[in-house]
Amino acid sequence: MTSASRGFFGRRRPSVDPARLPPGQYWTDDFPVLSAGPTPRTPIEDWSFTVRGGAAGTVTWTWEELGTLPTETFTVDIHCVTKWSKLDTTWTAISLDVLLERAAAEDAFVTAWSDGGYTTNVPLEDLIGGRAWLALAYDGEPLEPEHGGPARLLIPHLYFWKSAKWVRGLELRTDDEPGFWEGYGYHNYGDPWREQRYAGD
């Protein structure tokens, strides 16, 4: 049971529907950038996206090949473990259903890896069924490097560290291997609605 903080009234945002903010989150209209290392800058001609470990073996798309795949443009809310939430963000992205189906994904766990050495782990079932994407554009513009461009994962139903920036591939695995932040004490799954910020939540 938490007692009230003397003299704290808070600054509620009447325009924000509280039902859209997970517990402990606050609304922002900014787009903060938080990263553990420098922003990688891979030339687009050297860039590719790979899914390995599926029944179809290793499948790789160049940037040009990705451009031939169908994209969707949609609006979602995103929630960062550092407590900001940004509502109604618009993305143009390729559904991971398309990529994972091509790779004939079967195993239960996925590790996403990125330029710069970042990894994050997500159960396969969270990446299929129209709930996860490879995002190429934000608000109608190509994704800027500091926001993860040229391409990042977008898994809006989990805390945003799972939406790996500068993503270069997915590895399908039979075991669940904690990724970068998961290994530094953040929650293994990261559901904002259950406030799974840190290990043990």
């Binding site: 922002t28 209209d29 900014d30 787009f31 903060p32 950038v33 938080l34 990263s35 553990a36 290392g37 960062c80 473990v81 550092t82 407590k83 900001w84 996403a112 990125s114 710069g116 050495g117 970042y118 990894t119 994050t120 993860g148 990042r152 994962l153 805390y159 945003f160 560290w161 799972k162 939406s163 790996a164 920036k165 500068w166 993503v167 970068f180 932040w181 530094y184």
Partner: peptide
Amino acid sequence: FGATGSGLPAPSASQGGT
């Protein structure tokens, strides 16, 4: 840490995250 963000040196979110 962003201008609006989390006050001081924000917690590390993610290299690949936010």
